[in-house]
Design a protein around this nucleic acid. Sequence first.
DNA 1: TTAAGTGCAAAATCTTTGCAAATGT
DNA 2: ACATTTGCAAAGATTTTGCACTTAA
Lengths: 148, 148
Amino acid sequence: MAQTKKNFDFEELLNKHQLKKTAPRLRVLSMMSSKTSATSQPDLEEVMSDVDRVTLYRILTAFEEKGIIHKVFDLNGTANYALCASNCEENHHHDEHLHFNCVECKNVYCLDDMHLPKLEVPQGFTTDGVTVYATGTCPKCNKKKTPK
Amino acid sequence: MAQTKKNFDFEELLNKHQLKKTAPRLRVLSMMSSKTSATSQPDLEEVMSDVDRVTLYRILTAFEEKGIIHKVFDLNGTANYALCASNCEENHHHDEHLHFNCVECKNVYCLDDMHLPKLEVPQGFTTDGVTVYATGTCPKCNKKKTPK
DNA sequence: TTAAGTGCAAAATCTTTGCAAATGT
DNA sequence: ACATTTGCAAAGATTTTGCACTTAA
């Protein structure tokens, strides 16, 4: 059960959430599933430039409400979207994983499998969630920098 | 050397960065220093509603460039600003502390003194910075919830 | 057929830019 | 007096809303 989001799952996924299978929606899902990193809204808009911007907004909103994708802001405040892991439910996301923001290519990687260290907070604070952003260089960009 | 940013330091601070002491700038500094949490841009705009919005944008940009304040986006993508610790230099911020985002009052607390646990990243990634966002309830809001 | 989704137009925000007037040094 | 800073007007960009047309089921 390693990779759960294959292309032919998208119909089912939309069905499950009572969303009709339309071309723009399938393309959004397809694009997100083809990447290991989250997709920034500007990138999405570029690829989907033939559909109305409003439509894209509505698709993203709908997907987020249904728990199909989750939104994560990178360190520049830009919204990035990624498919949710299977344990996301409607309006209740489990995105307490590590978000890695590459300073070279700006991509945001959702490193789901990383275990996050326990966090201590001062007296009086109670935490219900932790999101960790790491900045640095991703493997792809590291390779470019060390061509040998 | 516990609290470094007293009111009478602001003149000096602006001087040091070759910025003129103007009323709006002093008010921004005063507001930020009076709070233990970062100040959201909407909050700033409300308090500073008598000065032009453009002026506020420029003040914040200038302060950030000079390393007087740093910007941190909360989990809703809203910009929040806080005075930099003294070890911030121009265009090179040290804000690798814990940002605590209260789900009740939406405030962002910069918990400078917390030590952040070492983070493991997968093969190929190299990190140069870590920002941790915790969500939860801050002491103030916890008190409200448990009135006794 | 009909409820849901899309596209277009337009409003509402948010952010940036240019320039003249005001202000700090 | 002079360089900065502010305010205003306007341009640009982003996001939201309303409604008619289209499409999936």
